[in-house]
Design a protein around this nucleic acid. Structure first.
Lengths: 265, 265
DNA sequence: CGGTTCATTGAGATATCTCAATGGTCGTGG
DNA sequence: CCACGACCATTGAGATATCTCAATGAACCG
């Protein structure tokens, strides 16, 4: 399995072989979690720093009345809790969408890594700040865009983030989220998500069949969703070894974890 | 002027005299900004790390159609951009609400401070993580609560955050936000904010006169707003010198910056 | 092959928005 | 000290996005 974290960090800065090796070493300890299980729960004390090696997960907060709000989608290569152990306890939960492979990194190990490899430390800072920026944009998206644009905006974001780690194929990617989960992420109702999806299809902006999303006209979808990718901070990598914005080869896999989802035929 | 940052950090950890002195020294360089001006603008390269010494400000993002969304309220003692210089450019703007006194801290100076004083470094980590947690809660608030609760939730949050730095008096505080700014923060319309305010007043939960907000029944308001303060991470300070949750004395000031706003009579 | 989960559709209810007008407050200049 | 203008708060009425409840249909799994 390719290391998606390394792939992502190189959008920010080139990493030496030694850096890569150190990152590989730190993420060697792995754990499997099934689909739709909790990785961490609100109120828990903090454990090790976790990283999504493969599969999809999400942060969410459960409301008293049973509804929940997903506040972030975690994709392969995403870190769950950089240095979050500074806080006493979790204020939200993390659950899986698909089966997930985690790397667990002991806090002192991470500190040592950051201490000995400043480039890696800076790259991890970037990863965290970019995640915060995404969080801000979610606030804007939910507050100010109407259903159709909100949904389209999420699809655009996921496309760019997945492309950064090589998990897109052309203009499509595997989308394991159910409509109820899209609703939980967007602050909408399952029913309304369904209708907005139909609208996006009717406008020939996307297709969605068999858990595979295809963006038929990315510029048009971005326009319709008021999407501007700057907040992802994937734009101009300041790497010397920069390659094109799109990975040259299609990704090796678009299945999630074990073969839980089918691709489009 | 008391140093609100120090006051806030001590909710997380006790600071030695030397720590306090170092923080004081780092925030010595100051700048004044008028009300409703931009401190930083989207697209700009990053400058020094900024801290709000006094006054209110906000992060916001401007949408193409002229509307804007405020994504965070910055209160005295809040840091604007901890280590954000890692990113190439700002993805949002920061503007003042009231006249603001800023401290500007050069990046290398901050690095040196964090390097030489690990307690301060950890405390600044806490401050950043708590801010991210607030950001997540804003997403939940806007996504899942209806107007009245949304407004009430914001009032509760501001109360707790201001109390942590000693800027409340009993159950009230100065609220310099206009209704249009409340609307921009909550993803509502100015008109609707007005009606929700009336509803909160009619239910005897708050009064708001002359830029002074009084919470008439905090537990009731928190209940009505589905507010739980855990996400603020101000709950259990692990300080040895912990005092009660409410500062013993009323704050020295509840005017913003220069005497721009009147208190309640 | 039957059951469970998920997606789709309809119709009525409600929160919020839009547009437009009126009223209040405050600072400024005459 | 008053009058004016600018800005902000308030109210009304109709429009629209989204929700709720409920039912049906499709897909998938054991």
């Amino acid at each position: 399995m390719p290391n998606f974290l390394i792939a992502k960090l190189q959008w920010f800065t080139p990493l030496s072989d030694a850096d890569r090796l150190a990152l590989h070493g730190a993420t060697a300890k792995r754990r499997q979690v099934g689909a739709r299980e909790d990785i961490a729960h609100e109120g828990q004390a903090h454990g090790p720093v976790r990283m999504i090696l493969d599969g999809w997960a999400c942060r969410y907060r459960q409301l008293d009345d049973g509804r929940r709000q997903i506040t972030a989608i975690l994709l392969p290569g995403d870190l769950c809790d950089t240095h979050v152990n500074v806080l006493c306890e979790m204020d939200h939960s993390i659950g899986t969408i698909t089966p997930v492979t985690l790397a667990e990194i002991a806090r002192d190990r991470l500190d040592a890594l950051v201490g000995s490899r400043p480039i890696v430390g800076r790259a991890l800072w970037w990863e965290m700040l970019a995640a915060v920026s995404v969080q801000r944009e979610w606030t804007v998206n939910i507050a100010r865009r109407e259903g159709i644009a909100r949904l389209g905006h999420l699809f655009c974001e996921l496309f760019h983030r997945l492309r950064a780690v090589g998990l897109t194929r052309d203009f499509g990617y595997g989308l394991p989220l159910r409509q109820s989960e899209l609703a939980d992420a967007l602050g909408l109702t399952e029913v309304h998500v369904n209708r907005c999806l139909r609208a996006l299809r009717d406008r020939d902006l996307i297709t969605l069949r068999g858990r595979w999303l295809t963006i038929l006209d990315l510029p048009a979808l971005e326009r319709a969703s008021l999407f501007r990718p700057n907040y992802l901070h994937l734009g101009r990598r300041n790497a010397a070894n920069a390659v094109g914005p799109v990975p040259a080869r299609p990704p090796e896999t678009y299945r999630y974890g074990s073969s839980h989802y089918q691709s489009a035929r």
